[in-house]
């Protein structure tokens, strides 16, 4: 009977979420009715099920009939993914603009009105742009994907054994996880790429009076490429999770590969010459946060010198955990 559920899943997957349950229920009834007619009271065998499903035909074709031949800019088959990606994009954009706005008013509270106007202007210009490009991407996807749907009609060779299993709940990746991940990576990438001078220790004397940056501002430009690369890989990893939607062996392998590449990139970067701000300690003292020779100075100095090593260790632990976590999730479902 597993086969029946697989078939129903294959049909309803290509339909809008709002219709799925109702159509699934009706199809289940139909298949049972067809089985009853075929078996006339005896117990239905797998072969009976297979014959009934063959009679109903390719589930993709049936889904197509349910959808009708309406012209869509973005059809129901990809509509749910479209909405999801749109959410990711808009959340990323809004949070990036908002964080930028908050940083600006902390740094320069007097011209808050100007910043606010800028903020509103960004909203009006950037959000429609993001919305437009995302939509455009999916329209292209629908257009070129549409060719594939037509090929399907000649695909008469279909057999119930082709049906993919229904994804296991435990292996499923919750949708919000990669969405949060992508938002987080985007935000960090934008902050690091365009306002790295604010990435450091913030100094306040009554009011904000400057930042002692962690990174070396002079060599920073040459590292920008690496930074974008690392976060780019992070985003790719989250996208893979979204596409697969469940933990599979292959997905874990891909995650491991992506993690390894990011790890190597990070190692090259933080060990590279003058990545960190060489005058960090000096600037801290100048900012009046520390006085040379004090106990606090010693501690901070030690932490600062060993930071490269510890960042590396933390990163390795994090990335290995990411892979182990994936394997555990595959295991659990077996």
């Amino acid at each position: 009977m597993e086969m029946i559920e697989r078939y129903i899943f294959a049909v309803t997957q290509g339909l809008l979420q709002s219709q799925r349950e109702d159509i699934a229920e009706e199809l289940r009834g139909l298949i049972e009715d067809m089985l009853d007619e075929r078996t006339q009271g005896r117990k239905a065998t797998d072969k009976d099920v297979e014959e009934v499903l063959m009679e109903l035909g390719n589930p993709k074709l049936l889904a197509q009939k349910y959808r009708g031949s309406k012209k869509y800019l973005i059809g129901p088959e990809i509509f749910d993914s479209y909405i999801m990606v749109l959410k990711i994009v808009l959340i990323s954009v809004v949070s990036t603009i908002s964080v930028g706005f908050i940083i600006q008013i902390i740094l320069d509270p007097i011209s808050i009105l100007d910043h606010f106007i800028e903020y509103i202007v960004s909203f009006v210009t950037v959000i429609p742009t993001a919305f437009g490009w995302t939509t455009f991407g999916f329209v292209l996807g629908e257009y070129f994907g549409g060719v594939k749907a037509k090929d399907l009609q000649f695909d008469k060779e279909w057999s119930p054994s082709d049906l993919a299993p229904i994804p296991d709940e435990k292996r499923q990746i919750k949708r919000y996880e990669p969405i949060v991940g992508i938002t987080f990576y985007t935000l960090l990438m934008v902050i690091l790429a365009f306002s790295n001078e604010y990435f450091g220790v913030w100094v306040f004397h009554d009011e904000f009076s400057g930042v002692v940056p962690f990174l070396n501002e002079e060599t920073y430009g040459s590292y920008l490429f690496f930074i974008i690369l690392i976060f780019g890989f992070g985003i790719i990893k989250e996208c893979l999770k979204l596409i697969y939607g469940k933990w599979t062996f292959r997905l874990v392998i891909y995650t491991v590969i992506v993690n390894l590449i990011s790890l190597v990139t990070v190692v090259i970067m933080i060990n590279g010459p003058e990545f960190w701000n060489p005058n960090f300690m000096l600037e801290l003292t100048q900012a009046g946060l520390l006085s040379e020779g004090s106990e606090a100075y010693g501690t901070v100095s030690k932490i600062w010198e060993q930071s490269t090593f510890w960042i590396f260790i933390l990163l390795v632990i994090g990335l290995i955990w990411d892979a182990i976590d994936g394997f555990i999730k595959i295991r659990k479902s077996k």
């Binding site: 219709q19 009706e26 009679e55 109903l56 035909g57 349910y66």
Partner: peptide, 10 residues
């Protein structure tokens, strides 16, 4: 065929 009728009813 049921595969034609069911979508049609909907």
């Amino acid at each position: 065929e049921p595969g034609t009728l069911y979508p049609l009813l909907r």
